[in-house]
Write a protein that binds this DNA or RNA. Structure first.
Lengths: 160, 160
DNA sequence: AGTGAAACGACCGTAGA
DNA sequence: TCTACGGTCGTTTCACT
């Protein structure tokens, strides 16, 4: 599943300190054992496992592999600001279908949509823009921000 | 470590099909056992373990917990486009130090920097913008794109 | 929700092709 | 770089609190 609704699981989750610590442990290393986490947070292995299962099932957290595009041969990344007419949700669906697009967000402001793309090179980026994105129904104009240097990238949203 | 250099580990990594499959397995579930992955890709448990270790050490991949800001009480996200003078790398360092900033990228285009922020509410966002970001040395103007709906969010960059 | 205990399975180091 | 194997540790289930 590539597209998801952040509101799907409902509202807050008001985690206690122990669950926050468990999440921190898994943010540092997603393969850390439940037993080791238990030692760090002062809980039995079984209790940690139950909490992790709940956190995962409720969508608060997931443990996944993240990869570095550069090392996989994708040397060109960019953010595309898009201005559009009509229902931007439909347009967002079309954008999300493109394999090179790894991030789509509907925004308020001078762009209606922001889309991040991952390309092998400038050639692919140019083709993507001209032959795919700018052809989509509703797109009135785009602005491209080529990445010069990715400086900070956190996955631990929300625990700060 | 919150800031990292994507070029740190050098250039390509030309993975074979087996390593790509291993990464796919861990993208689906970061806690899947080496033995189970081995069955899926046709390799012994030890071989999978060695490959995962190499992929992790070389920075091609890492297994981590990712969380949903909404469910942790951060209801307002936004992308801030920043125009600046001087060395934007220094400014990016200052931005990266702010806990609410989870993403900073130096760009070419009508913005010099794009920064994603995660806030509890509009109040915090407003304070962040006015009292923190716009005060930073070198910032000449900002443009804020408040997130209305996060539509697609991939962590599996590069394997497409 | 949590603990503890026993059976099972995964993980890790080492040896060898 | 892979497989094979044994010791160790983690995980799972279940009965209990």
């Amino acid at each position: 599943m590539t597209t998801y609704d952040r509101n799907a699981a409902g509202k807050p989750a008001h985690l206690d300190e122990v669950s926050k610590k468990i999440i921190e442990q898994l943010q540092a290393d997603g393969r850390r054992s439940y037993a080791e986490i238990g030692k760090a947070v002062g809980l039995s292995e079984a209790a940690v496992r139950q909490r992790v299962q709940k956190l995962t099932e409720s969508g608060v957290m997931q443990v996944v592999a993240v990869t570095d595009p550069m090392q996989l041969g994708f040397y060109r990344q960019a953010m595309i600001g898009i201005r559009a007419t009509g229902d931007t949700r439909l347009l967002a669906d079309r954008l999300a279908e493109l394999p090179a697009v790894d991030y789509v967000v509907l925004t308020a402001g001078s762009f209606d949509i922001l889309a991040e793309v991952v390309c092998e090179d400038d050639d692919e980026l140019l083709t993507l823009l001209n032959s795919k994105i700018r052809n989509l129904e509703g797109v009135t104009s785009t602005e491209t921000f080529v990445y010069l240097k990715l400086h900070k990238q956190l996955y631990n949203w929300g625990t700060r």
